[in-house]
């Protein structure tokens, strides 16, 4: 997952994405999916930025390719706010290969749950709220 700065040049963002994918491919990896979640609000400000453009690249990469891609992303701080690579286990990999990583449906944008005060509630046996 890569979080790009949506306020950076559109061109530079695209170039960055292309470059990362090229690096992975050049090192003998395969790009399976690229999911662009678009501009989203970050859960908290990173580098004083409130929004980020989320892109998730599902790929089979070699160690060298991934290292190089990460190095490049770390250097280009003005385009890439944050990045994270995760090694999937076989089940997850199968799933990801088939579906990629689409934006999960947010069925309840506002939380319907009541604040959890379970630790301080009445002394009875604990109950799950839902």
């Amino acid at each position: 997952m890569i979080i790009l700065d949506p306020d950076a040049d559109e061109e530079r963002q695209q170039e960055m994405l292309e470059r990362v994918q090229q690096i992975i491919r050049d090192a003998g990896g395969v790009i399976d999916h690229v999911n662009d979640w678009g501009r989203r609000k970050l859960g908290y400000a990173m580098d004083k930025k409130a929004d980020g453009r989320y892109v998730i690249v599902t790929c089979s990469a070699t160690v060298e390719g991934l290292r190089e891609a990460e190095r490049v992303m770390t250097i280009n701080k003005e385009v890439v706010i944050r990045h994270m690579s995760i090694v999937l286990n076989s089940v997850q990999a199968q799933h990801a290969k088939a579906n990629g990583a689409p934006l999960p449906a947010d069925d309840r944008p506002d939380r319907e749950e009541r604040p959890a005060r379970a630790g301080r509630g009445s002394g009875g046996p604990r109950r799950r709220e839902r």
Binding site: Q92, P104, A105, E113
Partner: peptide, 29 residues
């Protein structure tokens, strides 16, 4: 479990409190 993924943040919200703390096993069951 296949739906439960770190990218699937809407469903993860079930397991964190209003403040954002991870709910204990006692509460999540």
């Amino acid at each position: 479990l296949e739906d439960l993924d770190w990218k699937n943040f809407p469903s993860l919200r079930r397991f964190v409190s209003e403040r954002g703390k991870i709910r204990s096993r006692r509460i999540t069951g």
